[in-house]
Design a protein around this nucleic acid. Sequence first.
DNA 1: AAGCAAGACAACCGCCCCGGC
DNA 2: AGCCGGGGCGGTTGTCTTGCT
Length: 240
Amino acid sequence: MVRQPYLKKGSWNRDEDQKLIAYITRYGIWNWNEMPRFAGLQRSGKSCRLRWVNYLRPNIRRGNFSREEEETIIHLQKTLGNRWSAIAARLPQRTDNDIKNYWNSRLKKRVIVESNNSASSPTETKSSVEENSSDADSSMMLGIFLDSDTPGMHDFAEIAADTTFFPSGSNLSVPVDDHYSMAMDNYLVSYWEILSFLEQPQMIEGLDCEAISQNSQQWHSHHQQYYDPLHDFWVSPLIL
DNA sequence: AAGCAAGACAACCGCCCCGGC
DNA sequence: AGCCGGGGCGGTTGTCTTGCT
């Protein structure tokens, strides 16, 4: 009988985030179910995927939706329904989970109120965005700046180069939005921490990182995957 | 200051789709 | 054609934060 390895649930901690970021940055996304084991994470593949897609991957904008984004979501929800991934595809840098949460917590009520109001009087409901108008300035990004010469790093470097998110000359992100800053403080990963992590693969507890590297490469080779420098990930070519 | 309610959001669960065999 | 595994999606839940009394 094969014993099912213990799989942790619940909130991710900083250490787990670091491991996932470092692993994906180094080896790319090749198999979500196998990846946690090689990355030294006691998480399910699904959990890792969710964490990466909704939270850790580069170029995600968080918090404070602009008025245009709100209107777009409302419009698309009317036309597409609750197809959050389709809606997210039309809102760059937003995740479907974020949009879904935002809709459920705010927009749905607002739309209901407005539709009720429009039936009686056409007074406009005050947008929450008007109170948080500087959406770009107050956006929250996971702050990582890494050497753009390192495979998988140029997205991070692009974020770092964006002065909207980072103070000029700083390698480390500083979240502008206090609300998110407090909530996310535990998750901020500094340049130096990531870099030292990458330089010291033996930090992955109890795992032979050389073997991991070889196994990953063997897997890539076996599954005919190739590194795509454009997208910074391993890809499976279509063989027709 | 403490307790409670509501809001916000991260994460999980279950289902479905698709491709490979 | 049917089965299986991986990945994606939407709904829901759990937990933390905030605001009010």
